[in-house]
Simulated assay, not measured.
Amino acid sequence: MSLTLTQVYLTAWLVGLLGGVHCLTMCGGLVGSLTVGLAPDIRCDPWRMLPYQFTANLARVIGYGLAGALFGGLGALLLQVDSLQIAQRALYAFAGIMMILLGLYLGGWWRLLAATERLGLILWRRLQPLTRRLLPIHSLGQAAAIGFIWAWIPCGLVYSVLITAIATGSPLDGAGVMLAFGLGTLPNLLGIGLLAGAAARIAERDWVRRIAGLLIIGFGLHALWRLTG
């Protein structure tokens, strides 16, 4: 794994972890509907509820991985249809620019990437009714199906990291980038235990988000600087 790919993975994980406030805003309703949608005998027992929440979130992360593989495959196709050296440099520059934009978004300096949420509204309008058909939830299979559909919710952070996955030029690496992002979102969206509480408190601190934003911007600038060498 190259240093640059390591930086992309770390960027995806940090955006997932410290973008928790945004994730709770976008996905909080779905988390709530998952809880309310559980059969009453399950919903009344936190310990019985936990496997359903975990299963739904695991399926969501798997959905991210599948989407990342598809977009990484798109990047691989780009490497095939153009001059390899030119395509590699273009994808490299694209990754650097996306990391800079993600850093600006995470640090709260520029919310341009929020506009990407409009891209998924058409798809989400078709998928959202499927979740209603799966309620009430009586089985882990139903929870997994809802979680997988949840992966396609129109979210600026999800779509921005997904677009970055194109720059890996590999289905495997594209999946890895999205899995790293998904794992970063787990503490906030599972909402359980001390880890979740600590992650939420960290994500709410502006200075933490700004330091992470500057780090990611640095990754992007480093990628672009290497192109000049």
Rank of each mutant, 00 (worst) to 15 (best):
L66W: 10
V21E: 14
F54P: 00
L74Y: 08
G29P: 11
G63V: 01
S33K: 12
P40C: 12
G65K: 01
V21W: 04
Y52H: 15
L78D: 00
T55N: 00
D45L: 07
I42V: 13
S83T: 09
C44F: 06
G63Q: 02
V61S: 03
F71C: 12
D82V: 07
A67Q: 08
F71T: 14
V31L: 13
S33C: 05
Q80Y: 01
D82A: 14
C27K: 03
L77K: 02
N57H: 15
I86D: 11
T35N: 12
A69M: 11
R43N: 01
R89G: 07
R43L: 07
L58F: 10
Y52L: 06
Y52S: 06
R43I: 01
L34R: 12
G65Y: 04
W47K: 04
G68F: 03
P40R: 11
D45E: 11
A90G: 04
V61K: 02
R43V: 03
R43M: 06
D45T: 05
T25S: 14
Y52D: 04
L77S: 04
I42F: 01
G63T: 01
G65P: 06
H22F: 14
Q80V: 01
D82G: 05
M26Y: 09
L79R: 15
R48I: 00
G73C: 05
A76R: 13
I86F: 10
G28C: 11
L58H: 03
G28E: 12
P40L: 12
V31H: 02
L77T: 06
I86L: 13
A39D: 15
Q88W: 03
Q53D: 12
D45Q: 10
Q53C: 10
V31E: 05
I42P: 03
L34P: 09
C23D: 07
G65F: 03
L24C: 06
L70P: 00
D41S: 05
V61N: 02
F54L: 14
I62P: 02
